[in-house]
């Protein structure tokens, strides 16, 4: 057994995040860490250090799938590993993210009321009103509900594919992973040109 590193325990952050959002939805804003850190690694340093080590989601799937042995460890179907699906899922995810930002804007502009629900799989509305106690502008709460919905939906997808296929199957179609790999490949390409010219 290899020795554990401190970052192998980052799965605790994933659990804490969802627990905090259950009691106060405003904590969902902290989910932005999982969006900005991988981009900082990719854009700033041209690597996937976040995916490779510090992703709480990846560590959670590793802990449950690899270490606890909940994963069947079957090969994921070819379509799931195809570029078409990975890029398609990235585009879908970005569109739904914009949609969430638009809903936030509508509440900000007073065009619609705050909806205290968590939306699973972009369709199922789950009542979540106990987690909002005021203390922030309605648009800030709307964004929190939206981001928590995205985080919870992707966590459930990740856990389902962890059980069915390899522990970190989610990493194959993770939109942030796909996006940062595209950024890294682009940066690596330009750096190679710089080296040869």
């Amino acid at each position: 057994m290899k020795k554990s590193h401190w970052y192998n325990y980052l799965w605790i952050w994933a659990v804490v995040y969802f627990a905090m959002g259950f009691f106060n939805i405003l904590f969902a804003w902290l989910g932005l860490i999982d969006f900005f850190l991988p981009l900082i690694f990719a854009v700033g340093f041209g690597n996937k250090g976040f995916c490779n080590r510090y992703c709480d989601r990846g560590q959670l799937l590793r802990a449950l799938g690899s270490q606890k042995g909940f994963s069947r460890r079957k090969d994921a179907p070819d379509w799931m590993k195809s570029r078409a699906f990975r890029y398609g899922f990235l585009v879908f995810f970005l569109v739904m993210f914009m949609n969430m930002l638009y809903a936030t804007y509508q509440v900000f502009a007073g065009a619609s009321n705050l909806r205290e629900v968590v939306t699973l799989f972009w369709t199922i509305h789950v009542p979540w009103e106990w987690a909002y106690h005021g203390g922030a502008a309605p648009w800030a709460a709307q964004f929190a509900f939206g981001l928590y919905s995205i985080m919870l939906t992707s966590a459930i997808l990740g856990i389902l594919t962890m059980l069915a296929y390899k522990p970190r199957s989610w990493c194959v179609y993770c939109p942030m992973g796909t996006m940062t790999q595209l950024i890294c490949r682009a940066k690596a390409g330009t750096r190679e040109e710089e080296k040869t010219s």
Binding site: K48, N52, R168, C171, V172, G177
Partner: peptide, 18 residues
């Protein structure tokens, strides 16, 4: 997909994500 899962388990530290 450059996720680094292989690097994490390699007992020889033989894998890097380029």
């Amino acid at each position: 997909v450059a996720c680094g899962a292989c690097m994490e388990v390699c007992p020889r530290g033989a894998i890097t994500v380029w």
